[in-house]
Design a binder for these strands. Structure first.
Lengths: 129, 129
DNA sequence: CTTGACCTTCCAGTCACGGGAACCCTTATG
DNA sequence: CATAAGGGTTCCCGTGACTGGAAGGTCAAG
């Protein structure tokens, strides 16, 4: 299977697939002409990576999860630990973004948004308290 | 005012302040010995930038907001447009992160997290549907 | 034989800084 | 006077996870 077919099969851009190989997440075979040749196992890994990335896991987490996936003697506690830590990061981000959103939406509502220069948004940004 | 004092007055690291000068957001004076000398106006700009960055505005937005702040003939509609677009981005991120959190928290709850290898998290990541 | 669609590697850029090296300026102390 | 500490300066590299593009090899069709 060529890289474009692997791309279509996984939804990952070819560039991303090459990058994953470069950093050692996958190791596709090579044909005599130098082209990558993706076996089913590599395509499975790519799909796994695509799903993990879609859940926001970083590359390092993906590497660990991939290793655990391939380890028959793994403990589910190890997987859970990674997922739980990532969940905590996501929740922290949501908290931050929600605070930003609340402040901003209040400001946007308060701002007249007309041709006059008076603007509570700028007033808030430049306030000296 | 030296850079370390400007840093303390604004909460921004000295490195960040130098970076803001490098990209043209501020323009502090220079003393004879080459040291930066921050007048009140520059410190005000830095505080403005710190607040705008804390609300998640990108550097380009900060540049625009700073220009509008210094423009007496500005229209508040211009400010509002920037803030509204940024608000939409934040809300989109919150939506994405919330979806991730929901999926992940469900998986974490479902996973036994013990010594056994069976793990719904990995099962989901490797499922072929 | 040529065209066009693949594939390859390598280099540069993204965003908003942070770390660290190498070096200059000022002040205090032995 | 020498020196050490604690400012300041510039310059360059690294971050995460790719993305874009250039230069060039390979393959199938007409």
């Amino acid at each position: 299977m060529n890289i474009s077919q692997a791309s279509e099969a996984t939804g990952l851009p070819a560039k991303t697939i090459r990058y994953y190989e470069e950093i050692g997440l996958i190791r596709p075979d090579r044909r005599a002409n130098g082209y990558r040749d993706f076996a089913d196992t590599e395509v499975h890994k790519l799909r796994f990576l695509a799903r993990a990335r879609a859940l926001g896991f970083g590359i390092d987490d993906c590497r660990s999860l991939l290793a655990l996936w391939g380890d028959r003697a793994r403990a589910s506690a190890d997987v859970r630990r990674i997922a739980h830590a990532h969940l905590a990061e996501i929740e922290a981000k949501i908290t931050d973004l929600t605070a930003m959103r609340d402040t901003l939406s209040h400001l946007v509502v308060t701002c007249a948004g007309d041709g006059r220069p008076d603007c509570p948004i700028l007033n808030t940004l430049s306030s000296s308290d």
